[in-house]
């Protein structure tokens, strides 16, 4: 499903954010990406949706080499991905339902399809009763759930998420984690960068640890620790 071959990313300022990273993730996997701040987790994830390009090496997603794909194909790649980032916000001038609908509008879906799929996605995150509200009327955890609804509304093959529980309290983090597990159980590959040891240690999924841009640990049923 996802494969990185000797991926290195050196930024113009000389920072080596990824250093010869090779990794394979199978369909339906659930992978935690851990590591200290500045280890290269976000850079790694950005490679997967072609927000960034490797300096060296190749990235494959769903059998296609996306690191050499022309810019014009990138939107079609992203339609198969669900992306939840910490700073990938909602539009404040639009209702919850409109925000979720965005992922379907861009592919030109008809309005009847849009309204039924939006309803479905909002039900999954437990927010269909707040569909007509604006993001500013929601709590942080609710806003994050709307982001997740937006990411899953087009049934993505892969869900890519970067610190989705970053500034949420433990109980809400649990709830959101539960959502990802449900999504994963329906066959979507989930890859998630996080600093939340409790969640990682409790769930015992595959854990990939990055330090200074290098993979120092890749363990099935692993724990948060990286040393």
């Amino acid at each position: 499903m996802i494969q990185l071959q000797n991926v290195t990313r050196i930024f113009p300022n000389g920072v080596r954010a990824l250093d010869n990273v090779s990794l394979t993730i199978d369909p339906g996997d659930f992978v935690f990406l851990v590591g200290p701040s500045g280890a290269g987790k976000s850079t790694f994830l950005r490679m997967l949706f072609r927000e960034d390009l490797p300096t060296e090496g190749k990235v494959f997603v769903d059998g296609k080499e996306i690191s050499s794909m022309p810019e014009s194909r990138v939107p079609y790649l992203r339609r198969n991905l669900g992306i939840v980032l910490q700073d990938f916000q909602l539009l404040k001038t639009r209702t919850v339902a409109e925000n979720v609908a965005f992922g379907l509008r861009v592919i030109g879906a008809s309005s009847s399809i849009i309204s039924s799929r939006v309803q479905e996605a909002l039900e999954q995150v437990g927010l269909s009763h707040k569909r007509r509200m604006f993001p500013t009327e929601l709590s942080g955890g609710e806003q994050q759930r709307v982001c997740i609804a937006r990411a899953i509304v087009n049934n993505p093959l892969i869900l890519i998420t970067d610190e989705p529980t970053g500034n949420l309290d433990p109980i809400i983090s649990q709830e959101i984690m539960q959502l990802f597990l449900e999504i994963n159980s329906r066959g979507t590959t989930v890859i998630m960068a996080t600093h939340n040891h409790n969640l990682v240690n409790k769930l015992r999924k595959r854990v990939v640890a990055l330090v200074d841009g290098r993979i120092i640990k890749d363990e099935a049923g692993g724990t948060y620790a990286y040393e």
């Binding site: 949706f49 927000e51 014009s72 939107p75 079609y76 790649l77 992203r78 339609r79 991905l81 992306i83 990938f88 916000q89 539009l91 965005f102 992922g103 861009v106 592919i107 937006r150 087009n154």
Partner: peptide, 16 residues
């Protein structure tokens, strides 16, 4: 811009 970034992340083409 914020809105455009979001559109691009959910798979909008430049023409869209």
């Amino acid at each position: 811009r914020e809105e455009i970034v979001i559109m691009k992340l959910v798979g909008a083409t430049n023409w869209f």
